[in-house]
């Protein structure tokens, strides 16, 4: 009976885990990430997800000419050095944070309006383990008035 109860408890935990992680992720963005975007005005669109090591996420947005933008990639510490690139629509790399000590935010200015892609990549863990590391990642865009 005890064993059955134990197993049921484990199953219940497993079933609610994804929802708990997701809710945690959103709370994380609001508390840990948004304050760091200042003095830029947050564009108001929450782009956050729970990602696993090796995963890639992309944000498609338009940079308008004459506007100053800040891209901030905010992630939980256990994910390590999260890489981010700014790509044009032909997938040419315009900026790579790996070249700047995996900096979490960078400012951009475009002389003309164009569609751009922020690509984020979670590094693979160097230690081989059966448990895949996962955590919250938010890609935030801010602009200056």
């Amino acid at each position: 009976m005890k064993r059955i109860f134990k197993k049921t408890a484990i199953i219940a935990l497993i079933s609610v885990f994804p929802y708990l992680t997701n809710a945690q992720c959103k709370g994380f963005t609001k508390k840990e990430c948004l304050p760091q975007l200042k003095p830029y005005v947050y564009n108001g669109q929450l782009n956050s997800a729970v990602l696993n090591e090796g995963d890639v996420a992309e944000l498609l947005l338009t940079f308008y000419s004459g506007q100053d933008y800040r891209i901030f990639v905010c992630s939980q510490e256990m994910l390590g050095n999260v890489e981010f690139k700014l790509l044009d629509t032909d997938k040419n790399t315009l900026f790579y944070n790996k070249d700047h000590d995996y900096v979490k935010f960078w400012d951009f200015k475009s002389n003309s309006t164009q569609q751009l892609i922020v690509q984020v990549r979670i590094p693979q863990s160097e230690v081989k383990s059966e448990i895949v590391q996962s955590g919250c990642v938010s890609i935030l865009a801010g602009f200056k008035e």
Binding site: Q45, N47, A49, L51, L60
Partner: peptide
């Protein structure tokens, strides 16, 4: 390999 794509307006 892309797990999630966001679109901002």
């Amino acid at each position: 390999r892309v797990k999630k794509i966001f679109y901002n307006v």
